[in-house]
Design a protein around this nucleic acid. Structure first.
Lengths: 349, 349
DNA sequence: CTGTTAGCGCTTTCAC
DNA sequence: GTGAAAGCGCTAACAG
């Protein structure tokens, strides 16, 4: 048999239709300079044979692949899967195929993913770098001018534009909000303090605390539910038990919430809770959880825009390389619910 | 410049290394029949030039692309993104690239997705068919022998193996459980009753009700939160208000829960709630929500296994086409929590 | 062990 | 409007 899945080739179509292969090519590319009759006839043959162009052959001719890559830590994480969803939609609307790969925040799989995408000759990529100066990434950047945009976390000194939430500002706002409520012993609960986003949020928290002459207290021991429960138990039994907890990410907020529930700690009366990142049931649990929300849709959209701009540039014969060093910070916003002490008569749907 | 992203080609590597292109090819394919010195030398040049093989050229030579496709309704849905995560891991472990596309349960985008994947010449695909006899899909199946596996929903009369949860059995078990609790006016709340999974769950519910000589009552009006709230309001104010609600999917369960909370209906005292599909916070909300859980990991794994088996087959010169018509039903399991009337002292973490 | 060479399926001049 | 023909980067014989 001719080829592995019996898919007909362009020249087979040409032969059956009794035309030259160039004509078929013109037809599948929009039909410029093809007579209407030929067009119709060829289309019919294509239909009958079930012909689907071979992307590999097109790519080989040196043209763009109409494919972009998205590299995220995990596709199961709600934040990243929402980003992926948004980007997928934009890509499709622009006739691009999106290939998503996951890194688990692991520099090694990141390199693997990157290479897989380069082998595919994607036209560009959007990436959540595992590390601010990701070794594999930087090495790669030196030898290619692949259009690229970072999201969620910037890549330093790379000339790669990035779109991130204003994490520090968001965390600061959250902390200030807690302070306004009158809480004084606010602890910042977190894990993965090596990640850019987490560090920024810690900074924002610290800034607000210091500005209020309060003592910032960090507990960096969060890894999973168990460690969170332990951390909270220790905090509650410590000499200066906190009256509020600021959790730096989604999952941490949930773990903390569950632990507080388990220990029968009244929220917000005994301990208030404030989270970073909104999640579907934050408004449904009791008490509902106040959070800083990131504009996921906007992040995805702006990243896509930046990438498309680069794609344009590289098409226009390396003309103006466009201002690239920009790092766009998008605004977060505070969603007051019950866990911080705000009553929220309106927020419930 | 030679090619769009300045990526060197195999023959450039060969020239720089002072060897023939075949040698470079052998090196990047494992180095069979290449002297250690040549090997090392070529690898060094590859490294220096930052050479990455062009997948398109390889594909064009007619070999497998080492790429598989996954077509799901949405990548934001927790159930499907979990499946995607599992499959992604398995694919990577087997050196395959996974391309995920979304259909929004829309037959048209399904055809688009399918075509995009075929253009990429994926070696095979795993698909959640938008429709049991998806027109685009069936047409496509007639003219290709693309290795394929369906998950979540089977494709009828197609010879395509599928891996689905035993939805009917699960729903039946859930309903029986409610009946054992003594509930008698159990209504099945749902939307999208055209989907295979939903219909199966409705059937299971009906079967259990009829076996107990109870009257099955369906409310198919669920579309979004608003419609759910309305449905519940009507049910509560109806002549025979239900004493239990069986929700046929994740999102419906959540909406129902929120509406019941809003109306201050005591769960499970006044109305019990039981959902199909587990979700992260089902155990955290109060009352915690009892559900039927699907073995996501198993579904992903078995689908991958089935696909790999087909990939093997098609490599071994179309030998034994393997028994294909199978439809594997995996067991669901019941997670008793509070919303059905079970107290769950142990389940809370 | 290594180099030469003929395409894979397509796009794209360039004539007609 | 249309066809012939030259590659794109790579692999797989086939010689050496």
């Amino acid at each position: 048999m001719a080829n592995k899945s019996l898919l007909p080739t362009l020249s087979q179509v040409a032969r059956v239709a009794g035309v030259g292969s160039a004509t078929v090519s013109r037809v599948i590319n929009g039909g410029e300079r093809v007579s209407p009759e030929t067009m119709v006839h060829v289309l019919r043959v294509i239909q009958k044979l079930g012909y689907v162009p071979n992307q590999a052959a097109r790519t080989l001719k040196g043209h763009r692949t109409k494919t972009i890559g998205l590299v995220v830590p995990s596709t199961a994480d709600p934040f990243f899967s929402s980003c992926a969803e948004v980007i997928q939609q934009i890509a499709r609307a622009n006739g691009l195929l999106l290939i998503v790969t996951a890194t688990d925040n692991n520099a090694e799989s990141e390199v693997d993913s990157l290479n897989a995408l380069i082998r595919q000759r994607v036209d560009g990529m959007i990436i959540v770098p595992s590390n601010a100066r990701s070794p594999g990434l930087c090495g790669l950047l030196e030898r290619t001018n692949m259009p690229m945009v970072a999201i969620d976390r910037p890549i330093r000194n790379s000339g790669i534009p990035s779109v991130v939430a204003d994490n520090a500002k968001g965390a600061q706002t959250a902390t200030e909000h807690l302070i306004e409520h009158g809480y004084e012993r606010i602890v910042c609960l977190t894990g993965e303090s090596n990640l850019y986003t987490i560090r920024e949020r810690m900074n924002g928290y610290r800034k607000a605390m210091e500005a209020a002459n309060l003592n910032p207290v960090f507990d960096l021991s969060v890894k999973d539910y168990k460690s969170t429960e332990l951390a909270i138990k220790n905090l509650l039994h410590g000499s200066k038990a906190p009256d509020a907890i600021f959790a730096t990410k989604n999952q941490t907020t949930i773990y903390a919430f569950e632990a507080l529930l388990k220990f029968n700690v009244a929220m917000p009366r005994t301990v208030a809770l404030f989270g970073f990142d909104d999640f579907e049931l934050a408004s449904t649990v009791r008490p509902s959880i106040s959070v800083i929300a990131q504009p996921v849709e906007e992040i995805g959209r702006r990243a896509a825009e930046l990438l498309f701009a680069q794609l344009e540039d590289s098409r226009n014969e390396e003309s103006a390389p466009a201002p690239k060093n920009q790092i766009i910070k998008v605004k977060t916003h505070l969603i007051p619910r019950s866990s911080c002490g705000c009553s929220d008569p309106l927020s419930y749907r």
